[in-house]
């Protein structure tokens, strides 16, 4: 492999990881943008998403990498897998918001954030007790098609991940930019009290943000499974922290920022893994988190925090 091939390969890997982190970072950023809450339960909604996707694919009779699907069956299984995972994860997000966070809405201080940490542990333990703590083989029905680009390899799974990520992020951008609810989300993020006085039902907006963010976390969890061929109860922490770093890097509260941050973190992880050794990638990523927080707390594209009133 030439240096260029290495670079290309790490770009391919990094973009795939980046797609996963971007989708996950969007949930942090949507919720933070509206209510200045760092939602730690998001880490494990991602992990539960990976588990739901695994169970859903198994219900189709897929086991490990034995069954290869092509054509319409493959597209159908993937669509149903993402749909079920995203819907259920969105539902979990709504449940968390509606039952656990809404009663704390008027409470000042760290209580809501600490609640999300508690919820995260509960989700973790539910999976630990039902599915178990060992590493599971994530069903992957993708045919082992790969393209050689110079010395680098581009597999079908990467192409699929990119397509899904682009569709979801394009859809989200359209939604936030052009739909009535999307505009209400932006207005609420910019000035919650003013938004309320325009007749916007702020509770509904917050619930939608949780639904959307959690659904995207679910998609991200399924992508994790498809990318690594594994599901494990403790995957939420590493991916969640990277995605959180991505959100901060892009400017937490900023939707395009989360997408950009995710891609950058993915590229940084893969290239530092390649050129420094994978033990170093965590060091690099979390140094970035600290550096951004110290040097440019608003992130690359600027933080879009709610206006104080």
């Amino acid at each position: 492999m030439t240096a260029f091939d290495l670079f290309l390969q790490q770009a391919i890997n990094g973009l795939s990881l980046g797609a996963m982190y971007s989708l996950l970072a969007l949930g942090f950023t949507l919720v933070y943008g509206i209510m200045e809450l760092i939602n730690f339960s998001h880490f494990n909604v991602f992990m539960v998403g990976c588990m739901i996707a695994m169970v859903t694919l198994k219900l189709f009779g897929l086991n490990g990498q034995d069954t290869i699907l092509t054509g319409l069956p493959l597209i159908g299984v993937m669509l149903v897998g993402f749909f079920v995972t995203m819907t259920l994860c969105g539902g979990i997000g709504v449940f968390i918001e509606r039952l656990l966070l809404r009663p704390l809405r008027a409470v000042k201080g760290p209580a809501p954030m600490i609640t999300t940490i508690g919820v995260s542990y509960v989700l973790f333990n539910i999976i630990l007790l039902t599915i178990g703590g060992d590493s599971k083989n994530f069903p992957n029905p993708l045919p082992p098609i790969a393209f050689n680009i110079g010395g680098a390899v581009l597999r079908l799974r990467e192409i699929l991940i990119w397509i899904i990520a682009v569709l979801l992020m394009g859809g989200l951008t359209y939604f936030v930019q052009y739909t009535k609810l999307g505009k209400a989300i932006r207005a609420t993020a910019q000035d919650q009290e003013a938004a309320r006085m325009m007749g916007i039902e702020v509770d509904r907006v917050i619930m939608s943000a949780f639904f959307i963010g959690s659904a995207l976390a679910g998609a991200s969890g399924m992508i994790f499974g498809l990318y690594y061929n594994l599901a494990k109860v403790d995957i939420g922490f590493g991916a969640g922290l990277r995605a959180f770093t991505a959100a901060v890097l892009g400017g937490i509260g900023n939707v395009p920022g989360a997408m950009l941050g995710g891609v950058l973190i993915g590229l940084i992880e893969s290239s530092s893994g390649q050129f420094l050794g994978s033990a170093w990638s965590d060091v690099v990523i979390f140094s970035i988190l600290v550096l951004v927080l110290v040097l440019k707390p608003a992130g690359l594209l600027g933080r879009l925090a709610p206006n104080k009133s």
Binding site: K183, R186, A187, Q190, D191, A194, A195, M197, G199, N307
Partner: peptide, 22 residues
Amino acid sequence: LEARRLFPRMTVFENLEIGAYT
């Protein structure tokens, strides 16, 4: 509202749209 409180990062038209939210 006091001090106007427009949605600063939305366009003028979008602000009017939000006014018509209901």
